[in-house]
Amino acid sequence: MDMQFTSREDIEAPIDEVFAEITDFTRFERGAMRRGAEVARSDAQVEPGVGMGWQVRFKLRGRMRDVALRLSEYDPPNGIVIEAEASTVEAVLQVDLVALSRARTRLNVDLSVTPRNLAGRLLVQSMKLAKGKLGKRFRLRVAEYAMDVEERHKRSA
């Protein structure tokens, strides 16, 4: 009974640059902190790779939420997989990159959310009721991210 979100965007930038963007974990950490989340690394790795982890704490719907994130696949320049665990749900975020040409990359993003207990089942059930709206918002966020990556590429070119 899991919930699936998918999105695909084409980015006017070489695959190596797009991979560097999707693995700029420091930028993601800063962005989350700017939006009020507490982010702490849960590993001691210096180089990016499998095993990197984060403890993230943020407020959602009036309650504090704790999520453990772990980088479970790191395959330059093809993509990454991040696993997330919270008390009620677990999620897998898979980001795949495909070189369409030397200067164009397809970004495929797949998010799967699975309940861990009754509270998680209720959450996933309510997400399914709002699937159209949530899916649209997910695709919009991925599209905005792709545009940001493209803009940064144009400025650095």
Rank of each mutant, 00 (worst) to 15 (best):
M1P: 05
F5A: 04
I15Q: 02
D16N: 07
E17S: 09
F19E: 05
F19K: 08
A20N: 10
I22G: 11
I22R: 05
T23L: 01
D24C: 02
T26Y: 07
R27T: 08
F28Y: 15
G31Q: 10
A32N: 03
A32V: 01
R35Q: 06
E38C: 07
D43W: 02
G49A: 10
G49H: 03
V50C: 15
G53M: 00
V56M: 09
R57D: 09
F58E: 12
F58W: 11
R61S: 08
R65F: 01
D66A: 13
D66T: 08
A68V: 02
A68H: 14
A68R: 14
L69E: 14
L71R: 04
S72P: 06
D75Q: 10
P76D: 12
G79A: 03
V81Q: 05
V81I: 06
I82K: 04
E85A: 13
A86K: 11
A86N: 08
S87D: 11
S87C: 04
S87N: 08
A91K: 04
L93C: 02
D96M: 02
D96I: 03
V98N: 07
L100F: 13
L100H: 15
R102L: 01
R104C: 08
R104W: 05
R104F: 00
T105S: 10
L107I: 13
N108C: 11
V109I: 08
V109E: 07
V113D: 15
T114Q: 14
P115H: 07
P115N: 10
L118G: 05
A119N: 11
G120V: 07
G120R: 12
L122G: 13
V124T: 11
V124E: 07
Q125M: 07
K131R: 12
G132A: 09
K136I: 00
L140V: 09
Y145G: 12
M147I: 04
R152H: 01
K154D: 08
R155W: 00
R155S: 06
S156T: 01
S156L: 09
S156Y: 05
